[in-house]
Simulated scan of single mutants.
Amino acid sequence: MKRVPFKRVWALALALSASSLAATLPSRAVLSGTCCPGAVWTPDSQALLFLDGPPARPTTGIYQVSADGETVTRRFSSVAFFSPKLRWAVRPGTGENTVIERLADGRRFTLPTRGGDVTWTASENRLAFTRSDTAGNFDRRATRVFAADVFGSPRQVATLYGGGISGWLNENVLLLNGKRSPGNRDRELFTLDTRTGARRSLATALSFRGVSVSPDGSRVIYYVAFDSAARNGLWLRPTSGGTPRKLDAFGSYRWRDARRLLLIPLRADGSPHVLREYNVGTNAWRTLGDLGDQVRQGDWNVSPDGERVSYLSARDGNVRVVELP
């Protein structure tokens, strides 16, 4: 019988036990009282926005708490969909039209989104939205994709079935997923240049879950389940085409920046959630530490500067902030 070198056994043991040896990352509660699921970071990474109202706050509105938890102020007196850079408010009406308001000067225009939100480019000078049939099985339901410049007229750029918008890759190119015809089994993940109509197919599968575009638009990560063994799993794929990479992991994930991905592996035993980081360039994982807690219902976010993580505590319902290594 061939003897396995001790060093190799030791290295394997260290790798397998990395999560159990992870140090607990210090965190602080910035909101308490189970008030505020769904808190999101402000564009400058200095505060978190959350929806609240009576009895905890005098009036209903969008409030913000500083990242150190010291200061809470009301940021917006009305409730709306706000763009990622907080330049626009999307205010649905009771009919076809939705009002888009530029917060800097109050200038407005309308789009026929039927009350839905819009998807912004990084510059927030262009947007896209969908209009879907309201009856029938979702897998066979037609969804029409529209793109527009701000203050411009929308133009239909695609029709797909059982899918929608996954994000913008740049100012012109959308990432979409859906079926080409209602009777198809598989969905397609593809890019679409909204100016020229050029289309590139990236992958096909029964369905795509957790589709997330990297901040620079160069990569997309997604999960495939209940398909063939060759298709199932967590996939990282260049949006320009090229060879995809299957990651040996399963859990909840967020981009930290264009080259680093954070992942919380599934822990079915109720033990604290561990935060891991994947480096796209080196194809290597490292364990940052555990939270000493679990995240409730996948409610966690990375600050835009990649320096902090906020999460809703499963233990006490507080919103907590962790400084990342």
Rank of each mutant, 00 (worst) to 15 (best):
K85F: 00
F129W: 13
R286T: 13
V145C: 05
N177Y: 07
G281K: 11
A11M: 04
T94V: 07
A89V: 01
R75A: 15
G233S: 02
A128L: 04
R187M: 12
V145W: 01
R231Q: 12
Q156A: 10
T282G: 07
R259A: 11
S181C: 01
G136T: 05
A135P: 00
R315L: 10
Q46I: 02
P325R: 10
D68R: 12
T130N: 05
S228R: 14
G164V: 04
G33C: 09
R260H: 15
T191A: 03
Q46V: 04
D269R: 06
S32L: 01
L266D: 11
D139F: 09
G270T: 12
R87E: 12
R237G: 00
S252Q: 12
L174P: 13
Q156S: 07
D117Y: 06
P154T: 14
D193T: 00
L262D: 01
A128P: 04
N97H: 13
R185K: 14
A122C: 03
R254P: 02
A67V: 15
L174M: 10
L324N: 08
V118F: 06
V321Y: 04
A104N: 07
A284Q: 13
V280G: 01
I221C: 08
D52W: 08
G281N: 14
A230W: 02
G317T: 08
F81I: 03
E277S: 09
G106K: 12
P58R: 14
D316C: 09
G106D: 08
I100G: 00
A15I: 00
G61N: 09
T113M: 04
R114F: 14
I62R: 01
A284M: 06
T59H: 13
T71G: 01
G164T: 09
S201M: 13
R209W: 03
T24N: 00
P112N: 09
D293L: 05
D293N: 13
S214H: 09
P265Q: 10
G38P: 15
F250A: 11
T204R: 15
T239D: 04
T42D: 09
I221P: 01
G163L: 05
A158C: 01
L127N: 08
R276T: 13
E101V: 15
L202I: 10
R237A: 07
L16M: 10
R102W: 11
R107Q: 14
I165G: 07
R231N: 14
T204W: 02
F138C: 00
N279R: 12
R199W: 00
V99Y: 00
D68E: 08
L174F: 08
W88D: 04
G178T: 07
E101Q: 15
V173T: 15
Q156V: 02
G281R: 13
P84V: 11
V220L: 08
W235N: 08
R28F: 00
A15S: 10
N301C: 03
G292N: 02
E171C: 11
F208I: 07
R107L: 10
Y278T: 05
E171G: 15
F190Y: 15
R315E: 10
L103Y: 12
G210D: 11
R74H: 04
Y161P: 11
